[in-house]
Each structure stands twice: as structure tokens, then as C-alpha cells.
Amino acid sequence: MKDDIATAEQIAERARWMRRRAMQMVHGKGLGHIGGDLSAADILATLYFGVLNFDPARPDWPERDRFVMSKGHATGVLYTALCAAGYFEDELLESYMAPGSRLNGHPNRNYLPGVEANTGPLGHGFPIAVGIALAAKLDGSDRRTFVLTGDGEQQEGSNWEAAMVAAHNGLSNLTLIVDRNHLQQGAPTAETTALDPLDAKYAAFGWEVHEVDGHDPAALLARLGAPGTDRPRAIIAQTVKGKGVSFMENLAKWHHGVPSDEEFAIAMKELA
């Protein structure tokens, strides 16, 4: 059982390592979604080292908290978080996206401990998380469910069906986090299908809604670790695509771009 809650400073250091390691993986294999990895690093570091109750030695422990990575393309940051949390050794990260690797381009719970759901097609992870949270409520369990979606992913209609079901069933054990970096593959979300006012939409669906700086571990820790109410909770985390690398920040092309050797050297220096 996790009992060593990290400080905000320790979480920030974990996130820094995760960004650097994800950058190495994407550059080394020439594949990945580094922009979204970088935007979500502080969120995952806060969850795994400050919020979630889990035991990497017992990945199937029934009373563990669940985390579902609905934006399943962001495996660089998910795998580095699981590695840092103790689910497997760092050497396994070297096999990222290699033929036959357990570290697929999208997470697969049949291959890797700590992965709660197979995700990749956008709009699937959030409904799965609702089902997991509903099962916990029916069991009378205190276990919690957290799910991270991209903001472009919010354009999928399945998310809004899930939001209605969660509110209708009073799933106070469920927390949705939206990685609100305002960019999706190829364009800003506002140019594809505008989302705002996203907070008012979730509030109208019956959710408790909060906005937070998605790159402030102290703010994330305070919000994600706060006691719940009688409603599901939506956290809109304002983030920057490509966070931490100057030439990647706020550019849609880095949704799945791969840095050249020269760019990689610059990125690693900036992420140090």
C-alpha cells in the first residue's frame, strides 16, 4: 500500500525525470506523441506520487485506486510514471515500441502491470472509468477512480454519455482530469470543435468542477487530494503542449513529432 506521499518539490523532480525519459524513448524509437507526454507529466507525477493508493508488488490488489489513461497515445509519460512507481525496471523502457514489446504505442493491460484498461481509440477510457467507479460503489468500496482525457478527446460523444451516467449515479469516487493544452492533432481545439465553456458544460451535467494549473504540483496535489463531495469531480488542468521544451511548446506539429538529433540535444538540455 502506498504510504509515502511526496512533497510538491519531489513530485516536480519526478515529472522532470519522466519528461527526460519520455523524450529519450520517443527520439530513440522515432515514434510517439511527445507533445502530449510533456503536457501531462506533472499530472501523472502528482497522481502516482501524491494521490493514488496502490501497491506495485500487488498490481491486482482489489482495493487499489484505479487510474485510466484515456488519451492512450500518451504512452511515453504513462510508462515512465509506472516505471518510476515501481511496476517494472527502467531497462524495460528501452523496448518502447519495439516489435513484440510489452510497451505498445497504446497501453495494454494484458501486457503490463499497472495498466487498468486498454485505450487508444479516443472516447473509450472515460466510459470505462465510469464503469470501474460504479462497480466500486456497488461493492461498497472506498477505492477511487481517476481518468485523464485529452481536450481534443472531449469532442467524442461517448464522453458526454459517460458524464451523464456518472452524475446520475452520484459517482463521488470518480475524478475526471482534462489535459487542457488547447491543441490536438493538426490544429487548435478551438478551430476543430470549440469546447468552451468546458467548465459550465460539466457543471450543467451535475459535476463538481474545478480549474487548476496543470503544471503546478502543489495546486494539483491540493485539488486531486481533496476530499470529494456527493458528485463526480471534473478537474480542468490548464497545460502547455510540449511543456518544458521551447521549440515544442504550443505547436500542434509536436502532437506526434519526433525530434532530430540536434533538436533532441536542445530538448534534453532544457529539460535538465
Rank of each mutant, 00 (worst) to 15 (best):
M18D: 14
L251Y: 08
N53A: 04
A12F: 00
V240A: 00
R66Y: 05
L198Q: 12
V212Q: 08
E249D: 15
D230G: 15
S172Q: 09
D3H: 01
F49L: 07
E116A: 03
G242L: 06
T239Y: 11
I236K: 02
T75I: 10
G244M: 00
R58K: 02
M268S: 14
A222G: 01
A265W: 05
S101P: 00
F88W: 14
A218L: 10
R20D: 15
N181V: 03
F146E: 11
L103H: 10
F67P: 01
T75D: 14
A57Y: 13
D199Y: 04
D139V: 06
M248G: 12
A272M: 07
R14C: 07
N118I: 08
G100C: 12
A167V: 09
V51S: 15
W17F: 13
T80C: 11
G35T: 13
G157P: 06
L220T: 11
V77D: 06
T75L: 07
V258C: 14
G225C: 06
I235R: 06
D60A: 02
A74E: 13
E161K: 05
D196M: 14
I266V: 15
L112G: 04
A190D: 15
L93C: 11
R14T: 02
A200P: 11
L52S: 12
M97V: 01
E270Q: 11
G32V: 05
N181W: 02
G50K: 10
Q185E: 07
A12E: 08
M1W: 09
Y96D: 15
P259Q: 13
H210I: 10
R102V: 01
Q154P: 01
R19L: 10
P62C: 04
A267W: 00
P56C: 14
G257K: 05
W160S: 01
A167T: 10
V165M: 15
S141C: 09
F205D: 00
M1G: 09
G32Q: 03
I266H: 09
V51Q: 11
A12H: 00
R180E: 05
Q238G: 02
N108R: 10
V77F: 06
V258I: 14
P227S: 10
G30N: 00
T7Q: 08
G86K: 07
I11K: 03
R109W: 10
P56N: 13
M69Y: 09
R109Q: 04
A194W: 05
L44K: 06
L93F: 03
